[in-house]
Simulated scan of single mutants.
Amino acid sequence: MARENPIYFTEEAKEYFLNLLSSNSFPEPFLRIGMNGGTCGGSFVLGFDTKTDFDDEFEVEGIPLVIDKRQLLFVMGTEVVFEARANGFYLHKPSKS
């Protein structure tokens, strides 16, 4: 049974990370998405990291990803957006309609 992707990438974000991977410029084996400052009122974090015993591992559109098992519920459905004009990334969790 296939697992649902926990997060989504805009086309620009996906291309950015796939280019890093193909150029061997990915600084660590995984992209990490999580929460900083607790899950209530905390902020999203995005960075490169290694896997720990507390992580679930995913591959989303060819991008190796880890998420702390304790934070998975809180980041599920998050969209990683890259905007060059805004100088980088932001994470967006669309509200369910």
Rank of each mutant, 00 (worst) to 15 (best):
A2Q: 07
N5M: 10
P6H: 02
P6W: 03
Y8R: 15
E11Y: 13
E11R: 06
E12F: 05
E12H: 11
E12Q: 14
A13Q: 00
Y16C: 00
F17Y: 11
F17Q: 09
N19P: 01
S23M: 04
S23P: 06
N24A: 10
N24Q: 13
F26C: 01
F26A: 03
F26Y: 08
E28K: 15
E28C: 13
F30S: 04
L31G: 11
L31E: 06
I33Y: 14
G34Q: 07
T39W: 01
T39K: 11
C40R: 13
C40P: 09
G41I: 11
G42L: 03
G42R: 14
G42T: 05
F44S: 08
L46V: 02
G47F: 00
F48N: 01
K51G: 04
D56V: 04
E57D: 06
F58L: 09
F58W: 13
V60N: 05
E61L: 11
G62K: 07
G62I: 08
I63H: 00
P64I: 04
P64N: 09
P64L: 10
L65A: 01
V66Q: 10
V66D: 11
I67L: 03
I67W: 00
I67F: 00
I67K: 00
D68H: 06
K69W: 02
Q71C: 15
L72Q: 10
L72N: 04
L73V: 13
L73T: 14
F74G: 04
V75P: 03
M76A: 11
G77Y: 00
T78N: 03
T78I: 01
T78K: 02
E79A: 14
F82S: 14
F82K: 15
E83N: 10
E83G: 02
A84L: 10
R85P: 04
A86N: 10
N87H: 12
Y90P: 00
H92C: 05
K93M: 09
K93H: 14
K93D: 06
K93W: 09
P94A: 01
K96S: 07
